[in-house]
Amino acid sequence: MNCRDFNNVVNELADGRLMEAAAREAGLGHASECVDCAAQLMDARGTSAALHIAARADVEEAPARVKETLLNAFAERLRESMEQPAPVAERPPVVVELPARRALRRWDAATVAAAAAVLLILGSAYLLRESRRASQPSQMEAALPAPAVSPENVVGPETPDKNKGASVPTIPQDASTNAAANPPIKRTTPLAHKAPRVENVAAKLKSETAARNSAGSMRKGAGSNGGEYLPLTYLAGATAMESGTVVRVEMSRAALISLGVPLSAERTDETFKADVVIGDDGVARAIRLVGND
């Protein structure tokens, strides 16, 4: 053992702590041969003895007032804990199923968003429909009183006479007939002479009220060039008719009455000439009387 190794074990040697017997013998042997290490061992033993004396003398304790204070504090704390209500963990939970609430919130948000989207779509559709409705009467009014193609021109050589025989109907019939209910129409002009197409003619012509109001003018105007057209059909969604054909026909009074033309029920076998507006789908849309022979 050299001095450095001895320095590592000198305190254990001085304190008499448990250590390997071989290391102890080596250390003591080195101290017996090395004067410096022997002096170091003597100092270490003196320090160890002094520390031992100091440890034996170390018998102080905390003052009694510390214990009294602590015991009072413990009793006070114990009393407070007994006076307090049940611990929070034992209380019934105030808020439960937080995940469900969150899910509900998410569901609510999704529902609101979907409802908003549906409302937006419906609102847009409604506005679009209203805008179309607002634009259709003007088209109809522009087309019906003065069609782009006059029925007289369509008929050609056949010139309508004044509708002298047509009596004034008192109560117009229901004009809401469809194509299937329409009676057969006797054509006065061959199909080969079909009139040119009428562009941008409104499909939704006029309501029944308008027809009633226009009954007088229809009768008056039916003398030569005919009066106003009376709508025959009210097809849902058929609010616009881009093109159509005006066909002059000859119909009995009864047939006209069944179509809603305001005529009296006298002489039901009497025939009248009329212009019928037929859409591209083949459905008669409107009719007006022309001058009768």
Binding site: N7, D43, R45, G46, T47, A49, A50, I53
Partner: peptide, 29 residues
């Protein structure tokens, strides 16, 4: 740390009381 503290403590005691610390402590014990 203890080894270092012991070395320092010897120096402190020696400075406080002189070089005869070891023998004095042993006699007291």
């Amino acid at each position: 740390r203890l080894a270092r503290a012991r070395t320092m403590l010897v120096e402190k005691l020696r400075a406080l009381k002189g070089p005869s610390l070891g023998g004095r402590a042993v006699k007291a014990e």
